[in-house]
Each structure stands twice: as C-alpha cells, then as structure tokens.
C-alpha cells in the first residue's frame, strides 16, 4: 500500500449499507473510476454520494466535520484497519495516493455492541460521553480558580498529560479490540488528569467512577492485546491503561466511590 500513486486511480468499494438501527445491513459494491490521488478518503465518499444523489438514491451516511483529524467524528474500518492502512491518521486524513489503481476497499462501520450502528457508517458513540460524565473532569466551578501560575507543573508531567489529552474520542480503540474494550479511551482521560497536580484530589474516585461507567455501557475487559495502541490515530500509549488500573485498584481499596 505504500507506493504513492500520482496518476488517477480506479477503485472498487464494498460499502456497508444499513438503513436503520434495527435493519440487517449488507455490503454494496461501487466502482469508482479516475479518482484523483490528491483526494481524501472522505472526498472519495463525497464523489460517490454525488453520483448516488444524482441518481435519486440515498447517499452513504457517515459522520464527519473537521476533515483534518481533530474532531474525532469520522472513522471506519477500511479493509479491516481502523482509519485505513496508514498509522497515526484518521480516515479524513487518508489520501488516495496511498492506494493503487485497482485496489479493492471494504468499508464498514466500527463493530461493537456498545457503539451500535445507526445508519450505514454512522455509529452511536454516546457511551463515551457517559464515561466522561461519570468522572472524566476536575470539579472546578467557574470563578473558583487560583492564579494559573500558582501551581507549577513539571514540564515532563505536562507533556505526558498532553500526550494523553490528544485523544479525539473517535472509537478506533474499541473497534480494533477483540474484547471491544474502551480502556484506552477511558485511560487517556483519567491519566491526563492523574498526571497533573490539579487532578489529585479526585484521582482515585475518578478512576473508579469512569471504569464503572465503562462497564455499565457494556464495553469488554482489557486483556492486554494492545491492538488499540497500534490503531489509535493519535498514538495514545498503552501505558496509560496501567496508570488507570493502579488508580482504580487504589480507589477500590479505599472504597471511595
């Protein structure tokens, strides 16, 4: 897949079509001829949708917004890889020059019962919001803050916290985990806050609440497969999961829930 194409490409797409949450979906084949290598993957779907709309057919529904890899809206499995074959990018950042003419691409939504399909490639990720609502924050009411420089934070810690905070909540980690665990997502937020002095007072309680919300939402357990890390478009490190586990156990031991 690495060879860059500079000529236009002909691609065959098998795209998951599913009209509604309760309907059984299936793959539909579309031939896309003469696509520019400068096109992004979402622009390829735009081209296909343009054709379908002209024919009076329903276009493929997919979530997207920023189209630059930061909002976390887009995300599909492309030939079984979350966000496609390249690492460190989202589906919207994938360009056709990383494919070859003649390639056959199978495009499907995230597969997890905790992220159910609503239509075509659109899934319901509200379980992620519920995990954050359970404790993924520092309780600091507006107006209650001391001067920003009153509490120095070592640069190393701040940088590590920023690494974790880069999570975009797209769902690729869940989609690529054989247990459909949301541990990387949950750990990224918990770890960001656990690394900062501001996050200490609620640290253990936060870990317990977030993990319980994750369990309540039906996500599976983490069994250290590490598929999530390799498929994360922001390359969030698996080591955050260890930090969350430690905090969770500490929280449970203190029975502060």
């Amino acid at each position: 897949m690495a060879a860059a194409s500079s000529a236009n490409l002909d691609l065959t797409l098998d795209v998951w079509r599913q009209a509604s949450p309760d309907e059984r979906g299936g793959f539909q084949r579309y031939e896309m001829a003469g696509m520019s290598p400068d096109m992004s993957f979402l622009e390829l779907l735009d081209q296909l949708n343009d054709r379908l709309e002209r024919e009076g057919k329903e276009p493929i529904a997919f979530d997207h917004d920023c189209r630059e890899g930061i909002c976390g809206s887009c995300g599909f499995l492309i030939n079984g890889h979350a966000h496609g074959p390249q690492s460190g990018i989202t589906s919207c950042q994938l360009h056709l020059r990383s494919f070859r003419s003649g390639d056959h691409l199978v495009v499907e939504p995230w597969r997890s019962s905790s992220l159910p399909v609503i239509k075509d490639l659109v899934v319901d990720r509200s379980a992620f919001d519920r995990i954050i609502q359970a404790g993924g924050f520092i309780s600091a009411n507006t107006g209650s803050a001391p001067d920003a420089n009153a509490l120095p934070v070592s640069r190393t810690k701040a940088e590590l916290a920023m690494d974790a905070a880069a999570c975009i909540g797209c769902g690729a980690c869940v989609a690529t985990c054989k247990n459909a665990s949301a541990m990387l997502f949950t750990a990224a937020k918990a770890s960001q806050l656990a690394l900062l002095p501001q996050g200490q007072p609620e640290r253990h309680q936060r870990a317990v609440r977030m993990v319980e919300a994750m369990d309540d939402a039906g996500f599976g357990n983490c069994t250290n497969e590490r598929e999530c890390e390799g498929n994360c478009p922001k390359q969030i490190s698996f080591s955050h999961i260890a930090r969350l586990n430690r905090d969770y156990i500490a929280g449970k031991l203190r029975a502060v829930t």
Binding site: F137, A145, A148, A161, L196
Partner: peptide, 10 residues
C-alpha cells in the same frame, strides 16, 4: 486560571 484549574495541559 479557569482552564488550568480544569487540567488544560498548556
């Protein structure tokens, strides 16, 4: 001040 208190990693 507010953002730092929330844990924004500036």
């Amino acid at each position: 001040d507010q953002c730092v208190a929330q844990g924004v990693p500036f």
